[in-house]
Write a protein that binds this DNA or RNA. Structure first.
Lengths: 107, 107
DNA sequence: ACATTAATTCTATATTTATGGAATTATAGA
DNA sequence: TCTATAATTCCATAAATATAGAATTAATGT
């Protein structure tokens, strides 16, 4: 993970609507949700929602697949893991008592 | 941690210059570095640097203390831990094989 | 008191990001 | 084929963010 990718992914969730979308998709599980359901759940107009979904997709934090007329969006857990790993390294590098690393014996 | 704080903290590191500043301060350890050294190391003009340091401070991810004419900035590890914990919960909630959580038996 | 240095604030400007109505595209069913 | 529905793209506009020179503030040493 290079710093530009990290910034791109961070930017994609550094916005309230998009962080809410991502949380909702995490909760929704691997199958995800159709765009319409997301917009309805979070009360976001269609065009605005598409804009945010594109940001998250472009950063690679969500995936999409078409099922008939519906486009299902789902959280990309692997990508989020990669981002967390990057941040953990950059937060905890060489520091003994940095909690995520110390709580985690394998790191 | 509420969503607005998470977004504020994420925004503060979702920018290349600021993520570089934060990384540098993590590497520098608990004592941190004076503003001037940061600007010199990363080749950032003073006024721009002050702007970014203020953003990071306001988000609570860095601390500062004055030593004579120098202002030392240092990473706030606890705050970063809190952000990582929030993201881990929001990434991994209820999902067994999400790596940061699964690699970490205490979570 | 004066000059020097560290850092910030002020200011203007440029750039990026966010919002949402209207129009468009695409899929499905009658 | 015509209609309804899902979603996106287009477009204009608004708002927030980033940049950096110039001026200012504050601390130190002479």
């Amino acid at each position: 993970m290079d710093i530009k990718s990290a910034v791109l992914q961070l930017s994609s969730i550094a916005q309230e609507a998009r962080l809410e979308i991502f949380r909702l998709l995490v909760q929704a599980g691997p199958d995800g949700l159709p765009a319409g359901n997301i917009g309805e759940a979070l009360q976001i107009p269609g065009s605005t929602l598409s804009f945010h979904l594109k940001e998250l997709s472009h950063a690679g934090l969500i995936n999409s697949r078409q099922v008939s007329r519906f486009i299902y969006y789902s959280a990309n857990y692997e990508a989020m893991d990669g981002l967390l790993a990057y941040l953990t390294e950059n937060c905890c590098a060489g520091i003994k008592d940095c909690s995520p690393a110390s709580a985690c014996s394998t790191k």
